[in-house]
Amino acid sequence: MLSVMAHPIAPENLLSPGESSALSERVRTPRSNPAGCLIEFRSVSVVYPNGVKALVDVSTEIEKGEFVFLVGPTGSGKSTFLRLIYGEARASVGDVIVEGKSVRKLRHHQIPFLRRRMGIIFQDFKLLPNKTIYENAAYALEVIGAPSREIARKVSHVLYVVGLEHKVRMFPHELSGGEQQRTSIARALINHPPILLADEPTGNLDPDTAWDIMQLLQQINQKGTTVLMATHNRIVVDSMKKRVLTLGSGAIVGDQLKGGYSGGS
């Protein structure tokens, strides 16, 4: 695959079968050091206005540097789980704490600042259709008012990291799905956020391209970014041997280190 070749890190370095990070080996015990906790769910329930209970009494913690898969059938609350973290959904009961701050208590105008602390990628990429690849990546810096010289430098760098440095002038519709997802990852990473949220990032991609994206995410995680990824991709989850949070009917039904897709059920 050409796009893999363009990748700055060789794939074999990313997914060797015996690999396991120090984080995932640590024994999960009640935390004595809450400072290490990046995202915390405290008895969170979400009831939508139509009465649907999306999450029921969910409590969990995600530490800095972790790579966590969020799995479960459609409608089990995976997307709501992520939406709570980036402030798109609000907890009806309980609270979500991100970097020590309560998301529930954030005022509407503070939400953008929460989102600047995280990169978010989606199944449908959510790229701005009228902007070039360069402009899409740069947008995340424009919103924080970064100087144009810094923008130029960071955009070139991040597009190099995701292997798109030769497509900067193209528009999203001119790219393949994998390339579009790389663009959205570039945009997500450009601010060096401590958290990367991914909602089914491989859902629209063929298996090979999906692996490309997974390698990229793993590389990002190895550089210290906490990655939280909701997915249906059983093969990816089973072979990556990361922490797996399994949701079922809005509740956490499994939480395994080095888990597999069906581990919780």
Partner: peptide, 16 residues
Amino acid sequence: RREIEIMQLVGAAHWF
């Protein structure tokens, strides 16, 4: 409107 939604997801303030 989708652009507006995306801008919000990237952390753009309303005035921006």
